[in-house]
């Protein structure tokens, strides 16, 4: 419900705002993919929360938020923002890098501040600020954790996401980290960051292999499906499942010391909030904020889990 209200209120505020104080107010456009899966849902939540908070802190700033369910819609959103809202800055989390690059480039050329989040553009140097997630690092941290848990090696299966660069970088990082450790990846399939798909894939892995020591689910949504499949098959050989991203239910289980979920690896959807906030600072002060800001992937363990637990977030 608050979703709709925010957007309505935001739109109304902008309408009034542009009429009354067109000179003083700067508008920041935020363009992100729609909440079609868990991580994106969390990212949407953090974007809205950041906007609400920052609108109070900075009365001179207005925000326009648009969510797109595909790359074409996102291009349209960005064009609309420039044409009708006269934005001073654009915060964009590209749906896909290639199609979004040209329109963002033309926005940057017209003198608008551009902040790119998570997925980089295809041509470097367009953006003023790049708030990046660390996908190879995500894989590396996950791989190193596996290594530490299985010093004598073992057999694992891997569930991959939707075939994309992100997924490839993560898997490459993971494979590099476990190289030479004696850990063997016996099976690898796409679970598409989807609970149902990963449930089916894991069921089939369990039928196919008599011995699986651990699972790298690589994502918390997929971990949910994997856990359900293991539980249903009542298989004792699987010692633990490592997800990723930092879904609150999973962080909670780490915090509670669940043996099946000994850890999680962050890929925080809140990076969008960081990006919006840094952009707001750039718009309202002279503090230098340009450059690249990498948000590393951190291993969540029972010791530090409390810091990563956001009970109010939908993710």
């Amino acid at each position: 419900m608050s979703y709709l209200k925010t957007i309505l209120a935001g739109t109304a505020a902008i309408a009034i705002g542009t009429a009354a104080m067109a000179q003083d107010t700067k508008v920041i456009g935020v363009s992100i993919p729609a909440a079609t899966h868990g991580w994106a849902g969390g990212m949407n939540f953090h974007a809205q929360e950041a906007i609400e908070r920052l609108e109070e802190v900075y009365p001179d700033l207005d925000f326009v938020l648009a969510t797109a369910s595909d790359a074409v819609k996102q291009v349209n959103d960005i064009e609309d923002m420039v044409a009708t809202r006269n934005i001073s800055a654009l915060v964009v989390l590209p749906f896909e890098s290639d199609p979004i690059t040209p329109p963002v480039q033309s926005v940057a050329n017209s003198g608008v501040w551009v902040t790119v989040v998570d997925r980089g553009l295809s041509i470097p140097g367009i953006e003023d600020l790049y708030v990046a997630g660390d996908n190879p690092g995500f894989g590396t941290v996950s791989g190193e954790f596996m290594r530490s848990q299985m010093p004598d090696g073992g057999k694992i299966v891997v569930l991959r996401g939707i075939p994309t660069t992100i997924d490839n970088e993560r898997v490459a990082g993971f494979e590099a980290a476990i190289e030479g450790s004696g850990i063997e990846i016996v099976g690898m399939e796409h679970g598409n960051w989807n609970r149902d798909d990963s449930f089916n894939v894991m069921q089939d892995f369990l039928s196919k292999y008599d011995q699986i020591d651990a699972v790298w689910a690589s994502d918390d949504d997929m971990a949910v499906g994997v856990l359900a499949a293991i539980e249903a098959a009542d298989r004792q050989d699987v010692k633990f499942v490592l997800g990723g991203a930092g879904m609150k239910e999973m962080v909670k289980r780490v915090m509670d010391g669940d043996a099946m979920i000994p850890a999680d690896v962050t890929y925080p959807p809140s990076m969008i909030a960081t990006a919006i906030e840094l952009t707001a600072v750039g718009m309202t002060s002279t503090a230098p904020v340009s450059g690249t800001f990498t948000i590393g992937s951190v291993l969540v363990t029972p010791d530090n889990a409390a810091q990563f637990y956001y009970p109010d977030s939908p993710f």
Binding site: L4, G42, N44, A232, E249, P314
Partner: peptide, 25 residues
């Protein structure tokens, strides 16, 4: 459903789920 879930996931209460689980399994 996206709106109901606030963009995230709607999850059945854990105890309920445990009780309901046999209907599938």
């Amino acid at each position: 459903v996206t709106w109901l879930a606030n963009g995230g996931t709607l999850s059945l209460d854990f105890d309920l789920r445990t009780f309901y689980r046999p209907v599938y399994f």
